[in-house]
């Protein structure tokens, strides 16, 4: 084992390049001796903010943090019934993939299906979110994949409408771009006569994968899209950055 003693000050001060920092992190996770030294250095480094002049944060920041936490509580509420079933799925990721195939069974969407199952594995670290997603898929239903376009190529999201009563539709996004402050992603449900109804408005949370609940009922719409808006209300005004490209499978 190559110890990282020599790099711990750099590591703690944040002065290593990302690759080196990751290597040190990995080493610390398995070496108690280096970990103890790192902790002693961290103790000093973590005092550095105390050398700064006090600076009052804007009053709205507290409200904003609490609002985000509250919104997240609402989004990730986990279904507690049938835990044994989800617990079984939580273990082997392969079983999850198989479960997805059975539950969704949309042969036309091979690529999206595989990518969705991979995304769900990423979310698996957030158990509550994961359970609610698995629960939604297990109950079957319809789903749409929205592919990112233009500057959003590589981003995407799957809108899943569970068949079961009482479980709202939701979107699992992957690789969402960060947005400038004041801008919002908005999910739209689009009917065949081109009526756009707002389904969700949210800010990206910076994770690789993000689940977002949709507040409108899916019935009567046949495609969906994501735009960037300045406001959480009103008609669509911003550019379309993702849209569903395939007619959804029949329920």
């Amino acid at each position: 084992m190559i110890h990282v003693t020599d790099e711990l000050e750099l590591y703690s001060l944040g002065a290593l390049a990302p690759g080196d920092a990751a290597r040190v992190t990995a080493h610390l996770s398995e070496c108690p001796a280096c970990r103890e030294q790192a902790r002693a250095i961290d103790e000093v480094v973590q005092e550095l903010p105390e050398t700064l002049p006090g600076r009052e944060a804007p009053g709205r920041l507290r409200d904003r943090i609490l609002a985000s936490a509250r919104a997240e509580l609402a989004t990730v509420r986990a279904p507690r019934r049938d835990m044994a079933w989800t617990a079984r799925l939580l273990r082997p990721a392969l079983v999850l993939a198989a479960g997805l195939w059975l539950a969704v069974g949309a042969a036309a969407l091979v690529n999206e299906n595989l990518s969705l199952s991979n995304e769900l594995k990423v979310v698996a670290s957030d158990r509550a979110t994961y359970e609610s997603i698995v629960e939604g898929i297990r109950q079957g239903g319809r789903w749409w994949y929205m592919a990112g376009k233009d500057g959003w190529t590589g981003s995407g999201g799957t809108l899943i409408a569970p068949r079961a009563e009482g479980r709202p539709p939701f979107v699992v996004f992957h690789d969402l771009r960060p947005l400038p402050r004041g801008q919002l992603y908005t999910v739209w449900l689009v009917s065949s006569d081109n009526t756009w109804v707002r389904g969700a408005t949210f800010r990206p949370d910076g994770k690789d994968v993000q689940a977002v609940d949709v507040t409108a009922a899916i019935a009567g719409f046949d495609s969906c899209a994501v735009t960037i808006e300045d406001s959480a209300w009103g008609r669509r005004a911003g550019p379309v950055v993702m849209e569903s490209r395939i007619v959804p499978p029949a329920p």
Binding site: P49, E50, P53, G54, R55, A57, L61
Partner: peptide, 13 residues
Amino acid sequence: YDRYGRLAYALAY
């Protein structure tokens, strides 16, 4: 937040 928000903000700023 009430306890450390100010310090956090000073650091980020």
